[in-house]
Deep mutational scan, measured.
Amino acid sequence: MSIQHFRVALIPFFAAFCLPVFAHPETLVKVKDAEDQLGARVGYIELDLNSGKILESFRPEERFPMMSTFKVLLCGAVLSRVDAGQEQLGRRIHYSQNDLVEYSPVTEKHLTDGMTVRELCSAAITMSDNTAANLLLTTIGGPKELTAFLHNMGDHVTRLDRWEPELNEAIPNDERDTTMPAAMATTLRKLLTGELLTLASRQQLIDWMEADKVAGPLLRSALPAGWFIADKSGAGERGSRGIIAALGPDGKPSRIVVIYTTGSQATMDERNRQIAEIGASLIKHW
């Protein structure tokens, strides 16, 4: 067993022997301040990774656009098919120029040779490549099948209805392509620590998230040296922004954090800054 596999296998073990965790309302004060600064709703939840206990939450059962955070769930569904012998990570998928959609920095470079399922998941999570996500959605049967996968996990809230990039439209009061912070946090925890996926697939999923290259201005910008984070960000229309993450000190994750916002007129930089400040408060009061 590799060191990384050992780390993920012992996530519940280490967490069980940690000192009790206590909620700190100071972080919620910052979440509410972010709402004021952005002029928009902000949803927040913080779960203990081992027990699933909610440590703090704000608007945990209000719907927010998922945006690209759905790509972690998508690759979880792909990995479940791999575990069941219905898919192979090494299978190569070929596609054409007509398949390319807006923001496809990886797939646009491989029109000639195609990409493997493993490479597509890596591109979808680490670079948020939209064509990679659409190609992977095709392998599982489309958005409705991802929703069905989530329902089978016990998540009857999260739903995907459309493809990239239309799913980022974020129309107010439109339930399409949305989740709730509580539902997303619980589902992410199941994917990373539950028995739904094999140990190898859980490790692969967290490795992809740990290698995320496009979430630097968010929670990662607030992390002290030595902290662990595996995350996936999302951005959408109407001032929408979000991030889902597993993080913790001492090089291992111990909490799940989900943050979503929508309806702001603020710039992307300002949305990023507010999420980073929430992260800084979380870490300060850990």
Rank of each mutant, 00 (worst) to 15 (best):
H24R: 11
T27A: 11
L28I: 15
L28K: 07
V29W: 15
K30I: 11
V31Y: 01
D33P: 06
A34W: 04
A34I: 01
Q37G: 08
Q37S: 11
G39W: 10
G39Y: 14
V42W: 00
Y44H: 13
I45C: 11
D48P: 00
D48C: 00
L49N: 13
N50F: 08
N50C: 10
S51C: 07
G52Q: 03
K53Q: 01
I54G: 05
I54S: 01
L55S: 03
E56K: 11
E56P: 11
E56G: 09
F58E: 13
F58V: 11
R59H: 01
R59C: 12
P60V: 05
P60F: 12
E61P: 10
E61N: 11
E62F: 15
E62H: 13
F64P: 12
P65C: 09
P65Y: 15
M67H: 10
M67P: 07
T69L: 04
T69A: 04
F70C: 04
F70K: 02
K71L: 05
L73P: 11
L74S: 11
C75N: 09
C75R: 07
C75L: 12
G76A: 05
G76K: 10
A77V: 05
V78E: 14
V78S: 12
S80N: 00
R81K: 02
D83I: 01
D83R: 01
G85K: 06
G85I: 11
Q88S: 14
Q88M: 15
L89H: 05
R91Q: 13
R92D: 07
R92E: 04
I93N: 15
H94E: 12
H94T: 14
Y95M: 08
S96F: 09
S96C: 05
S96K: 11
D99K: 08
D99G: 10
V101C: 09
S104F: 00
P105F: 09
V106P: 10
T107Q: 02
T107V: 02
T107N: 00
K109T: 15
H110Y: 14
H110G: 12
D113N: 06
M115F: 00
R118D: 14
E119W: 15
L120R: 07
C121E: 00
A123M: 00
I125Q: 10
I125M: 10
T126W: 03
S128H: 03
D129V: 12
D129T: 09
T131S: 13
A133W: 03
A133F: 05
N134H: 08
N134R: 04
L137I: 12
T139E: 10
T139P: 03
T139S: 04
I140S: 11
G141W: 12
G141T: 00
K144R: 04
E145D: 05
E145M: 11
E145W: 08
L146C: 00
L146W: 01
L146P: 02
T147M: 15
A148H: 12
F149H: 13
F149W: 14
F149P: 08
L150T: 03
H151A: 08
N152F: 01
M153E: 07
H156F: 07
V157K: 05
V157S: 04
V157N: 08
V157A: 06
T158N: 14
R159Q: 12
R159I: 00
R159C: 05
D161H: 02
D161R: 02
R162A: 11
R162I: 02
R162Q: 13
W163E: 07
W163D: 12
W163V: 07
P165A: 10
E166T: 09
L167E: 08
N168H: 11
E169V: 07
E169K: 02
A170G: 05
P172C: 01
P172K: 02
D174I: 11
R176K: 01
D177A: 08
D177Q: 05
T179Q: 06
A182K: 15
A183Y: 11
A183T: 11
M184N: 07
A185N: 03
A185P: 04
T187I: 00
L191F: 00
L192C: 02
L192E: 06
G194Q: 01
L197T: 09
T198M: 02
S201T: 11
S201I: 10
R202W: 08
Q203W: 10
Q203L: 15
Q204N: 14
L205A: 07
D207G: 05
M209R: 04
A211C: 03
A211G: 04
D212R: 14
D212C: 11
V214G: 06
V214Q: 03
A215S: 14
L218K: 07
R220L: 08
R220A: 01
R220G: 13
S221I: 00
S221P: 04
S221M: 12
L223W: 01
A225G: 02
F228Q: 14
I229P: 01
I229R: 02
I229T: 01
A230W: 13
D231K: 00
D231L: 08
K232T: 15
S233T: 11
A235S: 12
E237T: 11
R238C: 06
G239N: 06
S240W: 05
S240I: 12
S240D: 00
R241W: 14
R241F: 07
I244Q: 14
I244N: 11
A245W: 14
A245Q: 03
A245P: 07
A246P: 12
G248W: 02
S254N: 01
S254M: 15
R255C: 07
I256Y: 14
V257P: 02
V257K: 03
T261H: 10
T261R: 05
T261G: 05
T262D: 12
S264P: 06
S264Y: 03
Q265W: 12
Q265N: 07
Q265C: 10
Q265S: 10
A266H: 15
T267C: 13
M268K: 10
D269M: 12
E270K: 06
N272W: 04
R273P: 06
Q274Y: 13
I275V: 13
I275P: 13
A276Q: 15
A276H: 14
G279L: 07
A280E: 01
S281Y: 10
L282Y: 01
K284L: 02
H285C: 05
H285D: 03
W286E: 07
